[in-house]
Each structure stands twice: as C-alpha cells, then as structure tokens.
Design a protein around this nucleic acid. Structure first.
Lengths: 212, 212, 212, 212
DNA sequence: AATGAATGAGCTTTCATTCAT
DNA sequence: GATGAATGAAAGCTCATTCAT
C-alpha cells in the first residue's frame, strides 16, 4: 500500500512511453497521468532518468519472461504448427514492448546504461531465446527436427523474424491483426524452414498425411 | 555552393543523431556543429522536425539505393556464397541507419509524419526488397533455387534477418566487424536455408508430390 | 496569499501595458516587473495571450462596474449638471483603459479572441451603458427630460462622446486634467443637448404634432 | 517608375496593417506581400519603424483629406438629411483607417513620434474637423441652424460620434453595412440634435412638411 | 537598385528539479 | 509521504538588420 504511488508512477510512465514516446515525456505529464503531485516523483526516484530506466528495464525483463512462457508443446502436433504458435506468441510479446525498448536508441545516455545491464544481468536477446532453443533441441531429440540444424542459431533466427515483424508493424502504425500476422509468419516458415524437417521418406509421409 | 550551408546543416544533424541520439539533439548543437548561426536553420527548414525528417529521408533513400546495388551475381559462385555477400551488403546498408530510424518511435510527431511519407513515396521496406526478390527469381529460373520457394517472401526474410542483425549489433554497441558479421550471417544461412537449394531428384519428387 | 504572485503578474502586466504598449510587452519584462521567475507566468496562465486577455478583461469589468456606480442623482440639481458629472465619471472610467483596449486592434489573434468573449459574456459597451439609460428614463418620467428622447440612444451617444474624448486625450498624450475635461464635456452638452430639456408648452406641442 | 517598389512596399505594409495588425507585422511578410526582396526595404527606409510611421502618417493625412471632401451641400435638402450624409461619409473615411491609426496605442515609440507630428503639422482631429465646422457656420448664416450653436464644438461632436461608431464596429468585427450604419447615425441625430434647428414656428412647419 | 543568405539577439515556452508547507 | 508553487536554465523559434553579390 505504501508503494502504491511508486507503482502508479511507473505504470503511468509506461503508458505514456507506449502512446507518446520518450521525446515529449515530461514529469508533469507523468504526475498528471499517475494522479500524484509532480514533486512526489522525486521521493521515489532520484531523477527522471532513473524512472525511465526502471520502466525500460521492467519491460526488457518482461520480454524475457514472456519468452519463457512460450507454448512449447514438445512432440505434439506438427512442428510447423508448433512453430507458428510460438512465433505468434513471440510477436505478441514484442509488439507492445518494441516502441519502448527501441526508445533507447533515441537517448545515448539511456542506451549506454542499458548496454551495461544487458551484459551484466543477462537480459539480452540471447538469454530470452534460450527457451526456444531448448524446445528445438527437444524436438530434434524426438527426431522431429533435422539433426543438421544448430538449434540455438535457428532459435535466434526465428526470434529475429518475429521481433522484426513486430517492429515493422509498429513502424507502419498497424495494430495487431491476428489473421494478418499468422499469415505472415506462416509464409516465413513455409519458405525458410523447408529444409529443417528431417528428409527421410517415412517421416515425411506421416507428416503430410496429417496435414491433410 | 549556394546550398553549401543547407548541406552542412543536414550533415551536422546526421552526425549528431548518430552520436548523441534524438533526445539530446538541439538546434543550438546543430548550428554549432554545422558552424552556422542558429537562425539559419529556419531559413532552410520550416522547423526542427522538417530538418530531422529530411535527414532520415536521405538516409532511407540511401539504403534503398544500396539495396539496388546489391552484389547480385546471378548464376555465378554458389547460391550460399552469393547470399552471404548480399546479406552482408544489406547489413552494411542498415547498420548506421537503424538507430536513427528507430529513434523515431520515440517521437510520436515524427513517427506519424514519417508514416505518411513512407506510404506516399514508396519508401517502405517492401520497395527496398524488390531487387533481392528479382535476383532470387533469376536463380530460381536457372534451377539454382528450389521452385518451391516464394521468392518475394524469401527476399523479405533475408532482409529482415540482416536488418535485425544490424539492430542487435547497435543495441549491444558493437562496431561493425566484418568477420563477426559474416560468421553470423553464414550461421543463419546454414541453418535456415538448408532446404532452399534444389535437392537430389528423388527427394524433390517425393517432397513436392506430397506438398500437392 | 496563495494567489499573491498571480495577482502580482496581472498587475505588472497592466502597468507595462499602460506605460510601454502591447508591442514592447515581453514575458521577461513582466517577470522582472512582478519580481517572479519567468516560468511562473506559465504556471498561472496558459500563454502570454491568456495573461493579456485576463488583464484586459479585468479592466473592462472594472469600467463596467464604474459605469454602474455613476453619480446618478435623479431629480436633484439640474439635468445638465448631473450629466456633466456623469460624463466626467465615464471619462475617468475609460481614460486609462482606452489605450489598452485599442492596442488589441494591433494583434489579430487577441482581437479575435476578445470578440468571442465580448459576445459571450456580455462585456460589450451596450451593457455598460444600461445604467445611464435607466437614469435618463427616470429623469424623463420626472418630466426633466423631453419625452421625445429615446433614452437608450441618448445614453449611448453620451457614452460615445465621453469615451472618444478619453481616446483623443490619450492620443494627444494629455494627462487627465479635471478643469480641461469638464470644460470639454460642458461644451458638448451645451451645444448638443440644447433641445433635450423640455421646452415651453407651445413649442413642444407644435413640435410633437409635426412629428406625428 | 524608379519609386515603383517604394510604393509597393508602402502599399503592402498598409494592407498587412489593415488585415493582420501591427504586432505580427514582419519585414519578411512585407517583402513577400510587396513581391520584393527583404533587403530592399532597407534601401528605401531607414528601418522598419520609419516605414510603419510613413504608412500611418499617410493614412492620417488621408483621413484629413477625406474630411475635406465631405458632401457639404449648404442650403440644399434638410439639415438633418445633409448631416446624415456627412456623418456617413465620415464613418466611411474612418472605418478602414481606424485599425491602423489606433495601432499607435500598441507601441509607445510610434505613439510619441506621432504626437509630435500631429502637433507640428496640424494633422490632429481638430484640423480634420474644420471643414465640417465651416459648413455648419454657413448653414447657421442661412438660418438653417440655431445661432445658439457653437459650430466648431458641434462639428467636433458629430465627428466624434461618427469615428467612435467606426471604432466600435471595428471592435465588434462588423463589416460596414450601409443600412445599419445609416440607422445608427439617424438615431443619434434624432435624439441629440433635436434642439439645434431654429425653434421659430414657421421654419419647423416648413421642414416637417417637406419630410413627408 | 535589387537579391536573399546569413546573423545573432531576444522572444515565448518548456521542463527537470527544489522546497516550504 | 505528499503537495504544487516556484525556479531558472535551456529549448525552439522569430525577426530586424546586414552584406556579398
């Protein structure tokens, strides 16, 4: 309860970062959005930079957490179906977060400070991707994914495609549209991951029967 | 000679955008960097936004031009070698420009203004990718790329991987290191594009029959 | 006490408007005159226009209030003596305010904004004149003013003469000099209002018959 | 021909003063309106103040000239008809000019400079009114105006009413509407000048017969 | 005479931060 | 903890004026 207002301020800042961006984000707007007095911000945070930093950090952590809750159903359904669902989840995890995380590029100070954290606290993408790599390795062990595949690299590529899609959609100002996004993802998977499924005759037969 | 100072201002703005970010970009710093009076900025540009806008537009156009000069050696070398060179070129085209473009997320005003232009002047990614798609189609016609591949989609995926790599390197604060980047790209191509080269006749037959 | 500085700013602005004119009125001069920080102006007023606006409105309201406290001694002294005192009071109410109001012609933005308020809040001259018209009607009922007179119109004319006199004195740079002003007013009344006092019965009869 | 541009600048300034006011009048807008280079203004005028001063002075002179071309038809029609026409002409002469002349109040410097001119060159209202006073004296000599009237004072009053009406209409943002203005003027004349016509029986009879 | 790029002082406004309450 | 008035430095921008051409 005592920290109620601290959370209000963080949430208000997050909301404003999302909707209006870092550039015109003022302490007075934050106070207004959080329904507290402007001065209170300085009881809870050293300065505005620290507040923004906390918000961005929260969201980076959040992205990592979301990556750890991917719908990883090892051995179930087809691999492509699973990947589609996973990439869709990744897309969703990043679509909201992207504008805030990328705000970092707008401020060298914030950027440098975040770089340190990313390195020290293992908050970088490589750590967020781990779960996906583990999943792919599991499928590989089950024989549902070609052994020729380097699973951490594939995991990274899939993550990159999903997050870049989220970023492009944001850049275009598009609101998330499930159908459109799923179509995009499916088209990537169809054209890129053609070779990653094991090529032995039996398996292929089994698989494509199921698809029908 | 007449537009000397106009160009000086644009170049100075680009330099500061690169080194200090959008948030710390002030008209007084720009004037100082360009060695002109602050008022002159407003003789050549309606306001600060228009100046930033022109810089971003120039750089986007530059990237687009670079995309049209990709090392597209159809039929020569191996496909993977060619793709590696191409993705490396794309990476280079976007490495410097990425932080600037993403900065725009941080300023709603600029963001909205940019979106309009992107739509009107066909400056979006889709147009930058065209050349790459044409190349892939040519290789496909030569039988060096599986006919199962949808070339525009593959082109988009390769572009997304290259640009997202550029973004990640920026996020980590890494300066462009050819060896490192080429290794990354090669690992992507190896793990992802495994299936896009035409396989031995038997396999292809089996596979494509099933797809139908 | 809480609004102390707000009032200081308003008073300082009024003083500067009076002494230096609208063109030379800067926020920095206002802050200096009010002995506050320049930024405080924007804590209390949306912008400079709103501040000026409030000052003008205050003074217009003041003039209106003064108009409602005219020395209206119905039935006492002679009509001309009363009118002289009234017009002198009107002159005084407007002498200071005239340059400020007329300054507004010089700024289209302020002018348009003022017009809206004048219409909405009934701050125009017509409302200031009401009291004078009521007085004249009272004198008319007492038989001290010709029934041929349209009292609202006469009230308006007397108000116009007084305020225009105030304006001319300002234009000439004359400081208010009671003797001079009273002489002027007396001369107007003598020459213009000759016919408004009821005349001998015969004349009135003749006249009003003819009017019908 | 050589002074063509000088005149263009003066006319452009006058137009802008009329439409947009003194406050936001810039040399760049003037140059644009006059279709000359900004620098040219300083070949023809010492500075911006001198240019504005010349324009205001021109218009004051113009008002004086217009006052000398009033429709003074001595002995013709009825006195009230003549006065109505005269006041209407005065109104017209001042309606356009008023916003520019009163701009003086917005700038103390301009105000002080104009005061000197008004005094030295006899450009003040008193000189503009002369013609009207002469007309009234002529009518007085013809017996069409009571000998009790001090003609210069009456002339001044009539001028004040007309110009104040012009000023009020401007303040309200009303465009000149002949019907409305004539009604106003007529109402002033009816209620104020009741007594200025000679009161002998014969004359009154004659007059009102004619009116019918 | 005419141009318009260039200047720089000064304007209005914004905003992170402080502090008395 | 909480308020919001107050600060003052610095931001974006305007504009009269100059000057090389």
């Amino acid at each position: 309860m005592l920290n109620d207002n601290r959370q209000n301020i963080i949430k208000a800042t997050n909301r404003l970062l999302q909707t209006h961006g870092l550039v015109r984000l003022t302490t007075s707007k934050i106070a207004q959005e959080a329904k507290v007095a402007e001065g209170l911000i300085y009881h809870h945070f050293k300065d505005k930079a620290e507040l923004i930093f906390e918000v961005v950090q929260n969201r980076v952590q959040e992205a990592k957490n979301l990556m750890q809750n991917l719908p990883l159903e090892v051995g179930k359904r087809t691999l492509l179906e699973n990947l589609e669902n996973i990439l869709f989840a990744v897309y969703h995890a990043y679509h909201e977060i992207t504008p805030i995380i990328y705000s970092i590029f707008a401020d060298q100070h914030l950027h440098i400070r975040m770089q340190e954290i990313i390195e020290k606290r293992e908050k970088g993408p490589q750590y967020a991707i781990k779960g996906l790599a583990v999943y792919l390795a599991a499928e590989q062990r089950l024989g549902r994914l070609s052994v020729a595949v380097d699973t951490p690299v594939l995991a990274k590529c899939l993550w990159m495609l999903s997050t870049q899609l989220a970023m492009l959609e944001n850049l275009m100002g598009n609101k998330p549209d499930e159908k459109h996004v799923r179509n995009e993802i499916r088209s990537y998977l169809k054209n890129i991951v053609i070779g990653i499924e094991p090529q032995s005759e039996q398996k292929k037969k089994t698989k494509f029967k199921k698809k029908k």
